[in-house]
Amino acid sequence: MKQGLTIAWLLFLASVPLWLNNLYVLHVLIMAGIFIIAAMSLNLLLGYTGQLSLGHVAFFGIGAYASSLASLGFAVHLLPDWQVSVDPKPVWFSMLCGTLIAGLCGWAIGRLSFKVRGAYFVIVTVSFAEVIRLVALNWVELTQGPMALNNIPYLRLGIPGLFELSFLRKPANYYLVLAVGVICYVVIRRLVHSRAGRAMIALRENEPLAASVGVDVTRYLVLATIVSAGMAGAAGALYAHYVRIVDPDVFLFIYTVTMVIMVVTGGKGTLAGPIVGGAIFGLLPETLRALEAPPEVQWVTYGVLMVLVVYFLPDGIVPALRNWWHGRSAVAAAPAPEQASTEAAR
């Protein structure tokens, strides 16, 4: 039944561009989808390994910049007389590069920063993202700095002379984001229901005990970071080739916070949590905009909701719903044994 529900959901999501003829709403859905992918990737770290990484937007931005730069081509002087230039690459290849480079950065950051935990880890990750943002802002030769990378090409797939799919228009991008999202979801689901995911859960729940049964703590934290960073990078690449302009503001800390809010509200450490949270906080800004509220209202709402969720739904929406559902079915099932016992008493 659960599988049937998943398929029904997928069919529904796939049908959206067929009956929805409001392009603005479709745009909102695409952006929400990109953020949901980023939130799912953060959930692997925050929810499953229990490490609060507040630098996650760095991987998103690295993916966006790396993919854009590869597709646009660039030339930089690494030393005054040593120039490195890269010719424009096909967009699908660039997106792959963006994903891999983000994953590689995840590996490096994981290796370095898991020496420290708790508050220290959080602060290292924040610092990492800020440094990357300042590099994007100041390394003008590579990134154009605040002038932003413009005219980023959109994705085209196909066999020359036979057929070509172009991802310029919104419905095509919607399906692209949906496909990448489904792939990421499946990869995460397989991981968390495997030896690797169990190792991550074990070290979240009880690190000394996990080590005592042979879990190599660093190895699994780094694995989680690589996968998580790679997926965030893929989301960034999707963003770059959809919006087709990338500036250093993609690294703003507020976007990490948005992802954290999505994960925490939806339910960290659950597969559906980031999707539910991502849908709520992906659509909320547009709802507020439709109500003609100034943009600050959106952030104030985020801030207040974050506090309220921590107080009243500390586990998030998905676990709360699940408990409520189980509680209901337990109540529904309860009369049977009660009856049996009263009969036995007679």
């Binding site: 495997s194 690797a196 169990r198 074990a202 729940e205 049964v213 879990v215």
Partner: peptide
Amino acid sequence: TSVFMGQTAFDNVLLGLHLASRQRPLAII
């Protein structure tokens, strides 16, 4: 007392079976 408190008893043992398992990340994915 040191167990994985948030997991079921069965999952606790499953988490403990880490060394008995041989899956590699790519095979899992």
